[in-house]
């Protein structure tokens, strides 16, 4: 395990307790430990339901971590996201962690380019730089410029997904969490996303991803982790 890891999971476990279903206990993952160094891309593998997406959500702080530690290197030091207070997690998301899912959460009235640029500004980018960079990314991802000023609510699934990728990749974050970002893209656009991910790796980012497409997975993975090994011991 390298000492300069940007992400290090240390015996992470997570379960859901469904109070409305008589307190049913659903184990998600159990005793997960791995680390990701700059330039590495760990791809989470395994059948659907194995907990791949949930694990990404745990690392982003979207799902709580019941036990264990999630060490994130934010450039100034190691932060245990599993124990961090909300504003520390918000700060990590602003500076260090990017999460790209396959779905864009549409905000009424805000145009595609503005959605992307806003994510840039939030990370401290100058407004004009963010605007220009947003345009570059949308162009690269083949989102037609006539759509840029329109709210993406009416866009196709693939177009929304590409706006979402641009939004997730605009800022310089050291840790990228990618949850099937290419799920409804054609081969041409998948290849572009692969290129963008490779560029992030070369820039020293740590990437953890779930990819449905084998071609994408094979192109970007430095390691494939089978998540079924983290199935709860009790099962």
């Amino acid at each position: 395990m390298s000492m300069n890891a940007l992400v290090r999971l240390d015996h992470v476990s997570k379960a859901f307790t469904l109070h409305l279903r008589g307190g049913v206990h659903l184990d998600v993952v159990s005793d997960v430990s791995f680390s990701v160094a700059p330039g590495e891309c760990v791809v989470l593998g395994g059948p659907s339901g194995a907990g791949k997406s949930s694990l990404l959500k745990i690392i982003y702080g979207n799902y709580r971590c019941d036990s264990g530690h999630i060490w994130i290197n934010d450039g100034a030091g190691q932060v245990d996201l599993a124990r961090a207070e909300p504003r520390r997690i918000i700060d990590l998301r602003r500076t260090t962690l990017a999460y790209v899912s396959q779905f864009l959460r549409v905000i009424p009235r805000i145009g595609a380019q503005e959605i992307v640029a806003e994510a840039g500004r939030e990370s401290g980018m100058d407004a004009a730089v963010a605007q220009a960079r947003a345009g570059e990314l949308l162009e690269m991802l083949n989102v037609p410029s006539r759509l840029w000023h329109l709210p993406p609510a009416t866009f196709s699934g693939g177009e929304q997904q590409r706006v979402n990728i641009a939004r997730g990749l605009i800022a310089d974050r050291r840790v990228l969490l990618l949850d099937e970002p290419t799920a409804s893209l054609d081969a041409r656009n998948r290849a572009i996303v692969v290129e963008l991910i490779e560029a992030k790796k070369r820039a020293g980012c740590a990437v953890i991803g779930v990819f449905h497409d084998e071609d994408v997975r094979d192109a970007v993975a430095t390691t494939v982790l089978d998540v079924t090994q983290y199935a709860a011991i009790a099962a």
Binding site: F16, T17, L18, H19, L20, K57, R64, P86, I90
Partner: peptide, 30 residues
């Protein structure tokens, strides 16, 4: 950014907004 869920005058759960909404732990929040 953050949410506090109240019920019968008490805070039953609080935390990051997306965490509380996507992974609610209290029975009432669920």
């Amino acid at each position: 950014h953050r949410i506090m869920v109240m019920r019968r005058g008490r805070a039953v759960e609080s935390g990051l907004t997306d965490q509380v909404l996507d992974d609610p732990s209290d029975a009432y929040t669920q």
